[in-house]
């Protein structure tokens, strides 16, 4: 019995030592809680918000930075990806079916093996199979809209124009991202409301009325197409009409909802 007690005490001491070391010998780190599923409200989506949603997804739910970072060298860096996407389409090693740069980017997220950057393929595959999982599958499980958001972020990162279609108030989707802090205002329903809300007529003439600081937009549809107008609103500095000062605010891309932008562009393009 004496030995039994001694052995018991010895064993308990040892277990205590192991537990003590695990509790006090090493720093106690609280693991991050599992991501929370919250509905993502797309009604108040502006291009800027869409890009920043893409950035959040890129760094968070999409787990992209796990490999696409400057430290590990596990995967190519993506800063220039949107710039060089067009060149990839012409590459002889390209296996996919994308027709333009944007489609290439989307495809690269969904079917990573369509083009594997030299040196980053699965070991032994001769750079034909990518180790990257599809962004739609499994734990990442991005929706189509989220994939688009990431592509928008990549385009913004490379400094090219964001060409991705920005969702305009479709049915709410679920996403692991929290919604923006401020309660969004209700979306405007007509082009007139948009013109009024953003005070376009303070500088521009629309239908013959308005200021003269900016070009007359009464017949703008006759000379410019929708794509030009869209860019001119989102990034006014890109091309300033001759004879006018570059004073148009750069803030519309952050304030105007995608649906509103669409209304406005359609309206302007129809002014012939």
């Amino acid at each position: 019995m004496r030995h039994f007690l001694k052995v018991t005490i010895f064993s308990l001491l040892m277990i205590g030592f192991f537990a003590g070391f695990s509790n006090f010998g090493i720093p106690e780190i609280k693991p991050a809680p599992p991501p929370v599923i919250e509905p993502l409200d797309l009604t108040a989506m502006t291009p800027e918000r869409f890009v920043s949603l893409g950035e959040k997804l890129f760094k968070g739910k999409g787990t992209c930075t796990l490999c696409h970072n400057a430290v590990g060298g596990r995967a190519p860096l993506l800063e220039q990806s949107a710039l060089i996407a067009g060149e990839r389409l012409a590459d002889s090693r390209y296996q996919g079916s994308a027709a333009d740069a944007q489609a290439y980017l989307v495809e690269s997220l969904l079917e990573p093996s369509a083009y594997v950057v030299a040196g980053f393929g699965k070991a032994g595959s001769g750079d034909t199979v990518s180790p990257m999982p599809s962004a739609r599958a499994g734990s990442i499980g991005l929706s189509d809209v989220e994939v688009d958001a990431i592509v928008a972020y990549l385009q913004d990162l490379a400094g090219v124009e964001v060409t991705v279609a920005i969702p305009s108030g479709a049915e709410p989707e679920t996403s692991d991202q929290e919604t923006p802090d401020a309660p969004p205002r209700a979306a405007l329903a007509s082009a007139d409301e948009v013109l009024a809300r953003f005070a376009c007529v303070a500088c521009h003439k629309v239908s013959g009325e308005g200021g003269e600081l900016g070009p007359d937009l009464s017949r703008i549809g006759a000379t410019r197409d929708a794509a030009y107008l869209r860019r001119a609103i989102l990034d006014p500095a890109a091309e300033v009409a001759e004879g006018y000062p570059p004073i148009m605010p750069m803030t519309y891309s952050g304030e105007m909802y995608a649906g509103e932008l669409q209304l406005l562009v359609q309206y302007l393009a129809s002014q012939r």
């Binding site: 970072n69 400057a70 860096l77 800063e79 220039q80 990162l157 400094g159």
Partner: peptide
């Protein structure tokens, strides 16, 4: 480790 690119002075710089 630095990020590969960073926004300073309103511009994006590629640190590489």
């Amino acid at each position: 480790a630095p990020p590969s690119s960073v926004k300073i002075f309103g511009k994006r710089y590629d640190l590489m």
